[in-house]
Design a protein around this nucleic acid. Structure first.
Lengths: 123, 123
DNA sequence: TTAACTGTATATAATCAATATATACAGTTT
DNA sequence: AAACTGTATATATTGATTATATACAGTTAA
């Protein structure tokens, strides 16, 4: 499964697992309805508590990347790219809201902001 | 001085003081080189530890809104509006960076993002 | 010069969220 | 029945946040 834990890195174990699996799903290495390793098998493999792998899977499920069936296992959900796109759009909207508020509080016009954004894409 | 503490609100005391003073400075009610109440006097007034008022003042100083002179007091710094503008610009840049990254990961073009931003200003 | 004020520095206590875990439970498969 | 699956509950540890006391050192003005 190629998941490695770096105990020295500051990021929590459950987060490392979550990120790695998410990338595997997004990149397509794990396809729709593929079974993920069971939380216990993966935990045994990584020599950590299965509660920790469960947490990573819970996060993945909460964000719609996987679905789990009690007593059966955890599987890659469909429509991940659409889901990711929706999430990103929502996130972008939030950033824009912040920008609009900040711009207002320092008298920055729409045009000035637009040129800043446009410039941001050139970097 | 009109500073009130709401113990029921979730925001920390030092933060309430910080926000209130910052608003007084930005709005111009406290002008350049005006003396703020001493950390001890304010603490006595609010019936809290002066360490807490000190923390609020430390935050204000770190962000450039006030300067303190040991054994003399704490005073409103100059150029607050310019400073605020700079801070806001930096913050906007950061939001733009995030947006650019998000847009890239879901194949959103510069033009699409620009129209989203433009739309954001209409709300 | 001393009393009363200013801010500073260090150490500490309480609280809370985050992280990781063990254990007991219940359903599925073979 | 044995061996697997995920679930639920309770708990321990850690670290950051918040608020504090106490001892210190400089300034001011009687």
């Amino acid at each position: 499964m190629n998941i490695f834990i770096d105990n020295k890195s500051g990021t929590p174990i459950y987060n490392q697992i979550y990120t790695r699996l998410k990338n595997l799903i997004i990149s397509g290495e794990l396809k729709r309805d593929d079974a993920l390793p069971s939380i216990r098998a993966l935990a045994k493999d990584l020599r950590i508590s299965f509660i920790t792998t469960k947490r990573a899977y819970d996060e993945l499920e909460k964000e719609g990347f996987v679905y789990t069936v009690p007593a059966k296992g955890c599987f890659v959900a469909a429509k991940n790219t659409e889901l990711l796109r929706e999430e990103n759009l929502k996130s972008i909207e939030e950033h824009i809201d912040c920008i609009v508020r900040l711009a207002a509080s320092c008298n920055l016009s729409r045009e000035e902001v637009l040129s800043m954004v446009s410039f941001g894409f050139e970097q």
